[in-house]
Design a protein around this nucleic acid. Structure first.
Lengths: 141, 141
DNA sequence: CTTCATGCAAATAATTTGCAGTAAG
DNA sequence: CTTACTGCAAATTATTTGCATGAAG
């Protein structure tokens, strides 16, 4: 469990209860979309408004506290800013899992002339372990 | 210039004038979002409706004729289904450029247990050549 | 012919905004 | 105190849907 107040202050943002709650939930889920984030947060903070969620997502992305993960075929999700990694996205259940990579692996990919690299987003789409197993079970049942 | 009628028929879709027009523009632009696609298309096909654009984008994605490119910080764009490549996305001007890659390069990335790989989407964010040069010009002016 | 696609208008969903009241530093 | 944040409601934008008409195979 991270110190969300600290994270916010380092980003020059006031550490409001709403923001720490949002960060806490994003951290718990790993990745989450706006609507699910909102539905989750109002269980513990009943008065927190959807507009506040939107506004904070925008400012926290701007300040680099969180990162928007663009996903083919669905709405974006948000994650805490963290070490470089790729996403394994299940096209059956929608789960998103992080996978660490050796940052040297992609050095050649990033070092290119005529483009000043800033960041990358690498998504692999397919079936997660659970869904592979589930489909086997169904098929053989 | 490709044979869009053929592409559509192979995908079991009727080759309507609207669909070929949409494919032609996507092909010309390389990547394009819904709104720009619509604005462009009505110059030559004044009566083509936005609803038709939406419906066709959805069905052509389903049939694998086109691919949705999810982009951090903006609406998705669409491209023709083509050989594996990565995207160089300029965070200043928004341009999206394809870059071919050796498919062996990423073999280790894709071959992982506990995940059945289907497809990947690799985006590099940064500054394109034009915007690098432009910022130099401004800075030294 | 028969089936599927189009266009319109209306419905719904998603996101943004303005502003008065509150809380953080 | 002062500035920035929140919550509400309203506005705007984006996307989807139903249905009558029209075109493709």
């Amino acid at each position: 469990m991270k110190n969300y107040v600290d994270i916010l202050k380092k980003a020059d943002l006031k550490a409001t209860l709403q923001r720490t709650a949002i960060l806490e939930i994003i951290d718990q889920y790993g990745h989450i979309g706006i609507e699910q984030l909102y539905q989750t947060i109002i269980r513990s903070h009943a008065t927190l408004s959807l507009a506040t969620v939107y506004k904070n997502i925008i400012t926290m992305v701007e300040k680099g506290v969180i990162v928007e993960v663009a996903i083919m075929g669905s709405k974006p999700q948000y994650e805490l800013k963290k070490a470089e990694h790729i996403h394994l996205i299940c096209q059956s259940c929608g789960s998103v899992n992080d996978e660490m990579i050796d940052s040297d692996d992609l050095k050649l990919l990033k070092e290119r002339k005529d483009f000043r690299f800033a960041s990358s987003q690498i998504n692999l789409y397919g079936l997660c372990k659970v869904c592979i197993d589930t489909s086997h079970t169904k098929a053989s049942a």
